[in-house]
Nucleic acid binder design. Sequence first.
DNA 1: TTGCTACATAGGAATCATTCCTAAACAGGA
DNA 2: TCCTGTTTAGGAATGATTCCTATGTAGCAA
Lengths: 157, 157
Amino acid sequence: MPLTLENIQQKFRECGLKSTPQRTAIYQALVQSTAHPTAEDLFAQVSPTYPMLSLNTVYYTLSVLRTAGLVLEVNIGHDRARFDANLSPHHHVICQGCQNILDVMDPRLNRLASPSGLPDDFEISSYQVAFRGYCGACRKSKISMTTSPSGKRPVSS
Amino acid sequence: MPLTLENIQQKFRECGLKSTPQRTAIYQALVQSTAHPTAEDLFAQVSPTYPMLSLNTVYYTLSVLRTAGLVLEVNIGHDRARFDANLSPHHHVICQGCQNILDVMDPRLNRLASPSGLPDDFEISSYQVAFRGYCGACRKSKISMTTSPSGKRPVSS
DNA sequence: TTGCTACATAGGAATCATTCCTAAACAGGA
DNA sequence: TCCTGTTTAGGAATGATTCCTATGTAGCAA
Ligand SMILES: [Mn+2]
Ligand SMILES: [Mn+2]
Ligand SMILES: [Zn+2]
Ligand SMILES: [Zn+2]
């Protein structure tokens, strides 16, 4: 099933969500992306089509979609919140240079045994593996960046 | 080796760090804790002994210790930064009720194979597994908390 | 022991992502 | 078509973290 407008609107109806142009555009932009964008990324992408769009609405919409279970908040580190409409179980790798986040679909990671050594009454409901490293582009430019501890984004897809 | 003052001061010297009362107290508080405290947690703990201590100094000290490799920033989610002086490789579980973070020392988790499906030029340098769930105390009180999406901390320490 | 100097501290202001507040617009059902 | 509860936009508020800067001081050398 491709992501036609009717498809999105039906998904909203199934979740009991009103279907508005802004909400549809924000969700569609997120579904089409594999970059795990921030609220501001989505705002920048949808804004040209809806010049009246408020960043506030993006935040509100994302919280609604998250509550409905259509969107996941994928935060690696404690910087800006990043979002993911890919609901299939998977993990992530973040480039410490450009901060780009890639999906890691390796099915072995979805079978990790419950960890030992926890209190008996602690109940694990989920887990996420966050890999860190450097992408090819950032590895090449890493030599010249001895000063700043956190690099800028050279390539952002 | 217990954590005497001389021990801490020697460790600072080995890293080329000046040894000040504030710095020593902050690091000592972090070493003694297993709670992965925030900067403000540490400020609250050290403040009574050093009433002139600035929260700013806590942030600066933590960044210095992190750069020196004596302290790790353990951020699960993108909320406040939390710190860890436990340098042995391990992972974490966070209670979604009280936000307490526990260490997960299961050695199996330190042997995960490099994930498949990544671009060839991506170089993984580390990874961290973050488990989520509910501790015993929060499970018991979860029934009465249908309204607030993120609960308060019932037990902290 | 004394003096120098680079680093550390404290306090205030600035930053910035996110949330709160509120009035107007509107989607969806009656 | 009308009503009502939701959604939106915009402005203000919040709060963690960083920036700026003057003063203090640890560690080294004379
Ligand atoms: Mn993803
Ligand atoms: Mn830990
Ligand atoms: Zn990169
Ligand atoms: Zn708990």
